[in-house]
Design a protein around this nucleic acid. Structure first.
Lengths: 155, 155
DNA sequence: CTAAAATAGTTTGAAATTCAAACTATTTTG
DNA sequence: CAAAATAGTTTGAATTTCAAACTATTTTAG
């Protein structure tokens, strides 16, 4: 297929606009879908935190606050909430008792999987009708975004 | 190019994971880049609000609060801040004097364009080396996401 | 035509979120 | 072993958010 430089510019504009708008909507839908399920007490931010804590990692509080760029105090508050609601547990690290390792409860793991499934569904519907090479390209585009982000943030 | 179903599944997983993580980083970078420029007093949320108000639309407060899913009270507070900082103006609609139409000041328009330019840069770097047909596919993927979002939110 | 209802936006007071700084407990270093 | 460093929590203040009450204006219905 051939494209004029005007068509490409138009595509670029469309893609830029769409990206600016879409993600906010995804966050919102994510939250509203999760609230329709048995996890009615969860906000989008908490979902994000649960995703970061992850299924298997036993991350520390410091690691999570670094990844999410939240102050340690803020994270402590968030973790208190999620602990109270029964989604996470704190485990004192026996090698170094200053450290708290974080884990998901079974309820937390269910939520994690529900969230992940929603995203998979989104990606599947987004790539419907794409063949393997197109999907590869899509993946490449995301790698490029990550590279761009790294460059900008390290400069 | 040929792909096994396992490879595709792996790509799907990669793409899902990447999407979950990337947006938060983009928001953060957007804000930190804008704060390095002459617009040091702007947060990511305010940037988003300025984008929604837009260059030409003269949207009303209600429209904006509906789009951004913010309560009217919250939006009033945000608009007060942006007005104080000189990015937006409120215009009483002379046909219906209950209505406030929103517009950007010249400073607000400069910020709008700087934000847009950043996104264009991101999209360009993300699609580097893609040909016209690949870019088309990318665009199609975003249309699919929009469709998915509409379906989920209207069901 | 006008009183009642509806609509647009602001104000208010309370709850939630966030941060930085001070603090506690523990481990590492010199 | 005392001092410094590190992990996480607590604290108090600032900011953000919401829903409900409120003001001003327009629309509707009798």
């Amino acid at each position: 297929m051939n494209s004029t430089s005007d068509e490409i510019k138009d595509d670029y504009n469309f893609i830029s606009e769409a990206l600016i708008d879409i993600y906010d909507q995804i966050m919102r839908i994510e939250e509203s879908e999760i609230r329709k399920s048995r996890f009615k007490d969860i906000t989008a931010k908490e979902l994000h935190l649960i995703h970061t804590i992850g299924l298997h990692d036993r991350k520390t509080t410091s690691e999570v606050s670094r990844v999410l760029k939240l102050s340690k105090g803020t994270l402590t508050a968030n973790l208190n909430n999620l602990e109270k609601k029964g989604y996470i547990i704190r485990m004192i690290n026996q090698q170094d008792r200053r450290i708290i390792n974080l884990g998901l409860t079974s309820k937390g793991r269910l939520l994690y999987r529900a969230h992940y499934a929603f995203h998979r569904q989104l990606v599947e519907s987004c790539l419907k009708g794409f063949d393997g090479s197109n999907i590869r390209k899509m993946r490449q585009a995301l790698v490029n975004v990550e590279k761009f982000i790294d460059e900008v943030s390290s400069k």
